[in-house]
């Protein structure tokens, strides 16, 4: 089995590496996106101050500060997460009105300085909890999103269309006439794409990270684990779509049906914080959401394994389910 799997894996790698135009665009697209987005959004600040309030629902009557204009108040349910956002300057101040009022402000943040003045002007007496930390630029937030999105497209379309092409050309039928099993073929495809995607993502990470001066807070090994499980899950998803069908239009439509909602709702461009609950629920189904949550936690917040275990389990589980379903429904022939 290993010998057969290795033969197919090796041949697929050769095919990908020698297909120069595909390889070129696989690398070019995310670079262009990140560079472009960093130009567009790099220097621009948001017009509002953003203040987190520790509460499930914000009651405007609870404190005079909550009636200030030009300040956006967002509910925060987890105090530790809220403090971290202040540290990364993702919110300008965190207010806790349970008992004696207290607040966290980042002393390195110019916006934090101003919004603190507004708070104290509206009602003095709140207890100050200073924190420090550099701002997370939009490009820092975007960077994992672009890598994840590139991974998603490469995994889904790269694998989906390749299997479809093999089926239409009769290559799969020829493989079917050998001792190779569907599971072996699919596993070889998954591993081949996994290696290539991890390699390409690594190149992009180093290349783009150097351009935008990105600083990783967490462990590189953990980040590689996230990348491996992410690629596994999404390659397996692409194989599931391509396992049975022979129509390019149908497979293209199904892949678009999967990728577009993921691109819009998984938090590639903006955080889903504050979006309707059902949107967050739907986003939670998509593997890309877990990819980005885990990657950002490691890259920006310096999270450890324990912090992202639920995401890792979700990605590993979906990989297994998709691969099993793909092998079960796999069709060698083009009819």
């Amino acid at each position: 089995m290993i010998k057969r799997l290795a033969a197919v894996w090796h041949a697929r790698n050769l095919e990908f590496v020698r297909d120069r135009s595909t390889l070129f665009f696989t690398l070019l697209l995310p670079i262009a996106l990140v560079v472009g987005m960093s130009f567009v959004f790099g220097g621009r600040e948001r017009p509002l101050f953003k203040v987190g309030v520790i509460a499930a629902v914000i009651d405007k009557q609870a404190h005079p500060f909550l009636s200030e204009r030009y300040v956006e108040f967002v509910p925060v349910t987890d105090q530790a997460a809220g403090v971290q956002k202040v540290t990364h300057q993702q919110i300008d101040l965190l207010l806790d009105l349970h008992g004696a009022p207290r607040y966290w402000v980042n002393t390195d943040s110019p916006k934090g300085y101003i919004v603190e003045k507004l708070l104290l002007a509206s009602a003095a007496g709140a207890h100050r909890e200073p924190v420090t930390g550099a701002a997370v630029r939009y490009v820092d937030y975007l960077f994992p999103g672009i890598l994840g999105m590139n991974m998603m497209f490469s995994c889904l379309f790269g694998v989906g269309y390749v299997v479809l092409r093999y089926r239409k050309s009769g290559f799969l039928k020829r493989l079917h006439a050998t001792p190779l099993t569907a599971f072996e073929f699919l596993t070889a495809q998954v591993l081949s794409r996994l290696c290539l995607i991890v390699f390409v993502t690594g190149v992009l990470y180093i290349g783009i990270g150097t351009i935008i001066h990105f600083h990783r807070a967490g462990s590189a090994l953990l980040l590689i684990l996230v990348a491996v499980l992410s690629a596994l899950s999404m390659v397996a998803m692409g194989l599931t779509v391509a396992a049975r069908f022979s129509s390019e239009e149908l497979v293209g439509g199904l892949l678009n049906l999967l990728t577009w909602p993921m691109m819009l709702l998984s938090g590639v461009w903006f955080s889903l914080e504050g979006s309707p609950r059902w949107v967050q629920w739907v986003a939670g189904i998509f593997p890309l959401t877990h990819v980005l949550d885990a990657a950002r936690a490691v890259m920006i917040d310096g999270a450890g394994v324990a912090d992202i275990v639920p995401d890792l389990i979700y990605l590993a589980s979906t990989a297994l389910v998709f691969l099993a379903f793909g092998a079960w429904s796999f069709r060698w022939r083009y009819d």
Partner: peptide
């Protein structure tokens, strides 16, 4: 088969090697 396409970008030797790897 009457019609068979092989994997793209492989040489003759590599195509044969791929299939040789599928048999014990």
């Amino acid at each position: 088969f009457q019609k068979t396409a092989l994997q793209d970008f492989l040489t003759v030797r590599q195509s044969i090697t791929l299939f040789r790897g599928l048999y014990a």
